[in-house]
């Protein structure tokens, strides 16, 4: 479903991803953990080519998106991303946020996009905010709208980059609950998060990144019970406290 083959990413002198190989199976729920600056965002952003790897190959749904002239906008329609800072379109209403891309990118008729958009807003508990503007919503509500916006593209893959890190603590759970609900479906999820409770409940596999490499991977229990590397233990002891 998603395949990274020998991926390297440099930012000037910085070698941010080092020979990364990773395969995410269709329907898999993958959680990515690791200290700040270890390359988690860069890794996940290579999966929809928001960052272009310096070398290596990224294959999404059978398409080599690193090849010259790859149908990027086409592939991105089925790979949705949810950001730490939500990145809703502030000049558009909640419903417009959810329907713009389906209408303009996928060419879905407005009525249809609005009907499904309202369904997804309902699912994240925000149908009644359809005509509000993002600035009128709390952080947790904005992130739930961002998830509805992602869902209304009917993606096969969803990428989450620390979706709860910018939220006040009391709003974290409402977003995690929506994500847990999503995980019941066949959708492929890659989630960068330090919410180990979420990882334990949802993840098929957890990878620990350090210094631009995948240092350790396994099912969530592995990380709670028997992390192999000292760095992993140290990191977990800090986030689990």
């Amino acid at each position: 479903m998603i395949q990274l083959i020998n991926v390297n990413k440099h930012f000037g002198p910085l070698h941010v991803l080092v020979d990364v190989d990773l395969t995410v199976k269709s329907g898999e729920k993958l959680v990515v953990i690791g200290p700040s600056g270890s390359g988690k965002s860069t890794l996940i952003r290579c999966m929809n080519l928001l960052e272009r790897p310096t070398s290596g190959t990224v294959i999404v749904d059978g398409v080599d998106i690193t090849a010259p002239g790859a149908p990027l906008t086409k592939v991105r329609q089925s790979v949705a991303m949810v950001f730490q800072q939500f990145n809703l379109y502030p000049h558009k209403t909640v419903l417009e946020n959810v329907t713009m891309a389906p209408i303009l990118v996928k060419g879905i008729p407005r009525e249809e996009a609005e009907a499904s958009g309202l369904e997804f807003l309902d699912r994240v508990g925000l149908k009644h905010k359809a005509n509000a503007y993002p600035s009128q919503l709390s952080g947790g509500q904005q992130q739930r709208v961002a998830i509805a916006r992602a869902l209304n593209m009917r993606p096969k893959i969803m990428l989450f980059d620390e979706p709860t890190s910018a939220l006040d603590p009391e709003m974290v759970q409402e977003v995690l609950d929506v994500m847990i609900g999503l995980s019941q479906e066949g959708i492929t999820m890659v989630v960068v998060t330090h919410e180990m409770g979420f990882a334990r409940e949802v993840a098929d596999r957890v990878i620990f990144m350090d210094g631009g490499q995948i240092l350790e991977e396994g099912p969530p229990e592995h990380f709670f019970e028997a992390p192999r590397h000292e760095r992993t233990r140290l990191f977990l002891s800090r986030i689990l406290r």
Partner: peptide
């Protein structure tokens, strides 16, 4: 905000669509 580009491009908007529908309207204000 740079995040506007990222959100729009990640949804499959082209450069021009992003400029026209997302970035330019916010800049004009």
């Amino acid at each position: 905000d740079k995040g506007q580009w990222e959100a729009a491009r990640s949804q499959g908007f082209t450069w021009w669509q992003t400029m026209q529908h997302i970035v330019l309207p916010q800049a004009l204000r």
